[in-house]
């Protein structure tokens, strides 16, 4: 694609990598937290619910700043990670972390709704047939919530692709390292006369987002049809 400059390419590939990892890494904890919130009654449940939603209501700058404090090489978690040789601050990993945390509430909400729509009596029935909790989750609940998991993942992916405030605060705006699509657009707009380059990146953003949405709709329909037994 000759109309994309190498630096544009870099931003697109980096964005996909960051958003992909953000989605992949927030899926298992998202599934667990969603299940716990949907099915278990435990002390501190409201607190967990609040914490999960925090990135949604805090200014992204604040989330980014808190991440910076925690994950900087001299921060509590950052120092521990540094000892095992992982640096997060000012790297694409940090961008993925920031994007994942910002996308987490959306992921949890979608999966939680899907779990709440599955009758817990089905799990009871599975248990009387000999299935342990894990087995009944894997064989009954999980297949039934696949559309919800897919929807949550796509929303999380889209959110991660578009994440700006927390990323720029936490890992800065380094081309090739942490400069994702939104950050690249922002950089172009800072320089007078670069409107054309910015517009190109905007078109790419819109195309990627729309494409992801269409693919997810199609997948969701297929899964729903398979669950209902019409295919």
């Amino acid at each position: 694609m000759s109309w994309l400059s190498p630096s544009d390419w870099q931003a697109v590939v980096l964005s996909l990598k960051v958003a992909g990892w953000a989605t992949l890494l927030s899926l298992p904890p998202g599934l667990f937290v969603a299940y716990a919130l949907a099915r278990w009654r435990f002390p501190g449940r409201s607190l967990v619910n609040g914490l999960v939603h925090l990135p949604l209501i805090l200014p992204p700058v604040v989330t980014g700043y808190l991440l910076l404090i925690g994950f900087a090489p001299n921060g509590i978690i950052g120092a521990a990670l540094a000892r095992i040789g992982i640096t997060v601050a000012f790297s694409w990993r940090g961008a993925a972390l920031a994007a994942g945390i910002m996308a987490f509430p959306l992921m949890v909400r979608a999966i939680r709704l899907a779990i709440e729509a599955v009758d817990p009596k089905l799990e009871q029935a599975a248990s009387t047939l000999g299935a342990s909790r894990i087995a009944s989750f894997a064989t009954i609940t999980l297949p039934l919530i696949l559309p919800g998991i897919l929807a949550g993942s796509i929303t999380a992916f889209a959110k991660a692709m578009g994440e700006f405030g927390a990323t720029i605060t936490f890992v800065s705006n380094i081309p090739g390292q942490t400069q994702t699509l939104p950050l690249a657009i922002y950089s172009q707009l800072q320089v007078p006369g670069r409107e054309a380059e910015a517009a190109r990146l905007v078109v790419i953003s819109v195309t990627l987002a729309l494409g992801a949405l269409l693919v997810s709709e199609w997948l969701a329909r297929r899964i729903a049809a398979r669950i209902a037994g019409q295919s």
Binding site: S132, I140, I227
Partner: peptide, 19 residues
């Protein structure tokens, strides 16, 4: 726990697995 009891349960609402 229920899964170790080996007691078959026929529920009023059948509770078949829809998928």
């Amino acid at each position: 726990p229920p899964h170790k009891r080996r007691i078959g349960y026929v529920f009023q609402d059948a509770r078949l697995f829809p998928h």
